[in-house]
């Protein structure tokens, strides 16, 4: 008995040595640091579904921490605890981690830092990634423009940063294409996740006459407010809104992080990782539009499908003549948007 153990051990060690140097998923552990809760039905849940997909695809060990505010000290505490436990790939999924991740990437050269929605990178172990959600927002704008009767569409939005502004403009371009008379009215909440602020903003827009609402927020509060007022609503992040506000829900631009996470982690494991930012959209299957409800006419549904295919094929531009750089720094509104930029 004892001998067979020993033989087994020897065989295992030989196998291990044979594999040494080659790519091995067991040498890597990935930690995810989240701003919100992993079952928020929104932004963080979309990332956590991506994490689960990553585990299924690669078998890598993962862990996650929720509710880490976008300030340096908390992120450092959590990330260092992971590093001490041998985690060597750290995902940070909110803009505010940008600077602390840059700083820590310098201190921990053996750890790969992947930052969602930022714009910074270094030349070895820190980069950013994001999805072109504005492509799906443009498509949802086509639906919204066709649905409004008051020609006022309300947009509950978090912060006036380029990411959010780009989404608003893409949405407004979609609205304009089917309904040149409609305007998109923006109210800022100054929070990513704030059910009360979001409800307040949604109600203000409804009182101002908006009959279709959408949002760049992490909770379903806007949808619940729209449901109560008998208005229509375009959600964000996941299809969860369909349960939260079944009558108001039309569709939602949704995230699909799993394939991108698998691609990035495989690149790290196979030593093919580069710090060129990952920024793809519908063509890379990172973003999509959730199944459109029957509130929308079949003509518009056909238009949405056609445009989607053109975006994937690269034959249609939502912002004509703009480079990625222009889009990443966008700080103006297109002309059918009503709102302030500060």
């Amino acid at each position: 008995m004892r001998r067979s153990w020993a033989v087994g051990l020897i065989i295992i060690s030989i196998l291990t040595m044979a594999c040494g140097g080659a790519a091995d998923v067991d040498d890597y552990k990935a930690a995810f640091v989240y701003l919100g809760s992993a079952n928020d039905g929104g932004w963080t849940q979309a990332h956590d579904e991506g994490r689960q997909y990553l585990v299924e695809e690669t078998g890598i060990e993962t862990a996650f921490t929720e509710d880490v505010p976008p300030d340096a000290t908390e992120f450092r505490t959590v990330a260092e605890a992971y590093i001490e436990q041998g985690y060597n790939i750290i995902f940070g999924t909110t803009f505010g981690y940008l600077d602390i991740m840059e700083e820590m990437a310098l201190e921990y050269p053996d750890v790969t830092f992947l930052h969602c929605s930022g714009y910074k990178s270094n030349d070895s172990n820190y980069t950013n990634y994001f999805g072109k959600i504005y492509e799906a927002r443009y498509l949802s704008g086509l639906a919204a423009g066709s649905l409004t009767e008051s020609n006022k569409i309300g947009y509950v939005a978090a912060f006036p940063i380029p990411e959010v502004i780009r989404g608003i403009n893409a949405f407004a371009n979609g609205v304009k294409e089917v309904n040149p008379n409609a305007t998109v009215e923006v109210v800022w909440t100054n929070t990513w996740f704030g059910p009360e602020e979001e409800t307040q903003a949604a109600n203000a827009l409804l009182e101002a006459g908006a009959d279709v609402l959408t949002q760049h927020q992490d909770s379903a509060s806007t949808g619940i407010a729209a449901e109560a007022a008998g208005a229509k609503w375009i959600g964000y992040h996941t299809g969860y809104g369909k349960e939260a506000a079944p009558n108001a829900f039309v569709t939602a631009p949704v995230w699909n992080w799993g394939p991108l996470y698998t691609e990035m982690v495989n690149a790290v494991i196979n030593d093919e990782f580069t710090t060129t930012p990952y920024w793809t959209g519908m063509s890379g299957n990172v973003v999509d539009l959730f199944e459109v409800s029957d509130d929308v006419s079949s003509d518009i549904k056909t238009l949405i499908e056609d445009r989607k295919q053109e975006i994937i094929d690269g034959t249609f531009e939502i912002f004509e003549g703009s480079s990625d750089g222009d889009l990443l720094g966008m700080s103006y509104f297109v002309d059918n948007v009503v709102g302030t930029l500060d």
């Binding site: 930690a31 862990a63 921490t65 880490v68 505490t77 959590v78 605890a81 992971y82 436990q85």
Partner: peptide, 8 residues
Amino acid sequence: GSVIQTIG
């Protein structure tokens, strides 16, 4: 309290 989450 912050690090306790890293072990689930």
